[in-house]
Amino acid sequence: MNVVVCVKQVPDTTAEKRLDANLRLDRASVDNIINPFDEYAIEEGLRLQEAHGGEVTLLCMGTESAQETLRKGLAMGADRGVLVTDPALAGSDAWATSYVLAQALKRMSYDVILCGMQTTDSGTAQVPGGVAEFLGLPQLTWANKVEISDGKATIQRQSDAGYDVVEAPLPVVISVIKGINEPRYPSLKGIMQARRKELQIWSLGDLGISQGMVGVLGAKTKVLGYSRPAPRAKGQLIQENSQAAATMIADFLAQAKVL
């Protein structure tokens, strides 16, 4: 069974992010890491491989520097990597990203396509669904458990109230949530092997995609402006004895319609 894991390079979550004059994320001035959600997807892919055999391939759309991100995934144990990179991709929105990944996937072998549920930079969570649509595949999103048997995938889909059990026939796109597993740390031998693993670089030309479909030209969404989130209001401090405090907290929760 072959698995393709979609991964993205994002700014370090602890870095202060800035937007450039075009209101696009300034990626050059910060340290970049693998999207933390994607680490869970890679781990899940490796576990599927351990259980069912086959290959795990990483697919990434990004700048040349995203090779580092792919190398880390290869160090975790993925077999090979594909980076789609092209200057014309700059400014691509979720629609274009989904389209490009789908076009790349058409040239790859997969039974399961795994994605992190969202990225920590733009955070739309739209790409897994977009990829499934472009490929005409079923999508199972927000999985906190994945099982593959008899040609179908069954997941526990996390919801506010608990989880739903959802299934779909293979091939399928699955997005996983944080906490579905504990991503492994690359071992030293894994890091050493990663250097020798195949990492292909594909351009838009290789995928037969015209420049007008992607990047700023092809974007269906436009960022008009931005503002910082309002600072969090100060919490209310309760300094009473435990009985009185409990009553006040209960009243507060009832008022907020939590209880």
Partner: peptide
């Protein structure tokens, strides 16, 4: 490679 190992 050393940088990756250091980070890991």
């Amino acid at each position: 490679e050393q940088r990756m190992l250091q980070a890991v």
